[in-house]
Write a protein that binds this DNA or RNA. Structure first.
Lengths: 167, 167
DNA sequence: CCTGAAAACTAAAACGC
DNA sequence: GCGTTTTAGTTTTCAGG
């Protein structure tokens, strides 16, 4: 359908930057820093949401603080042709899958999986491998992060059912 | 040092959930849904931030809307032992790296890279490969996402210098 | 650790430019 | 498209249980 560029100017860019840095910044404050009234900023933010540039506002959380201490990337190999539609269904069955995509290379898909601990991860992996047309998986466990923290959200559910602590 | 569990109760969990769903929810509204006054909610949120459970509030953005249309995972192989410290330095030199971690398996590190387009990605890759002790890289390009959208933020800088459109 | 109330601030809507 | 004003609601501080 219509996919016209939808004007997106310097002002919009600055507004988005401000909201990414702090989603709770007031419209007045943003306006002051970009040279617009609070009202004008609100109108633009509303439009940015309607056009899907901004998809939401969220608190970023340190996953380990919520009890997600194990993380892995899992390459998935399917039997025969792997229809992305069917793959998407499978992926939605496992809440521990934080991200999933089809990729180039030998694998059909790459999953980003979060689990409480190694035991939990093993259980998730077994569950995934039991899905109909999954032929094999190769897991790469994450050892440590080299960048401060990409929220890499996906920790959609805060309590994986044990007592989380802060470190 | 002290790494005592730092009490984290059911109420905190609900508050975090509410803020992850919508970072702009008012304290009063959160309070109403968890059975606390707005003031009490604010105090808890302040504490959750101080203790590092909540690391920030951010707008989630569709990267393609900002001109980031190419995404890849890059396995990095280093010469000899790869000291995570040095790797971290290298990673910080390239703003296109949205996430980076050390991993199990043959590779020393896994990078999540975002670029404007394939040309830009090639340039980033060449830049990375010129770093001192990088021996080889294997790239896996992302074709399509199977889940709605993990913000997977890391789009820290909104304008990769071209005119982005909405689709 | 909580509630409640007052002051300061912010958001939302209406109106005109 | 933007700004100003009004009205309603929210955040923050402070007193007190």
């Amino acid at each position: 359908m219509n996919s016209r560029p939808t004007p997106f100017d310097e002002l919009d860019r600055k507004i988005v930057t401000a909201l990414m840095a702090n989603a709770r910044t007031s419209f007045a404050e943003i306006g002051a820093s970009v040279g617009l009234s609070a009202t004008a900023v609100k109108r633009r933010v509303d439009r940015l949401r309607e056009t899907g540039v901004i998809t939401g506002f969220t608190a970023t959380v340190r996953p380990s603080a919520l009890g997600w201490r194990t993380e892995a990337y899992v390459e998935v190999y399917c039997e025969g042709a792997a229809p992305p539609r069917r793959l998407a269904e499978v992926v939605r069955n496992h809440p521990e899958i934080a991200a999933a995509m089809t990729v180039t290379g030998g694998a059909d898909a790459l999953l980003h999986v979060r689990a409480r601990d190694v035991e939990h991860f093993e259980e998730v992996l077994e569950r995934i491998r039991q899905e109909p047309f999954i032929r094999k998986t190769i897991s790469v466990m994450v050892l440590s992060h080299l960048l401060p923290d990409s929220p890499e959200a996906g920790v959609t559910q805060p309590a994986p059912d044990d007592a989380p602590d802060v470190r």
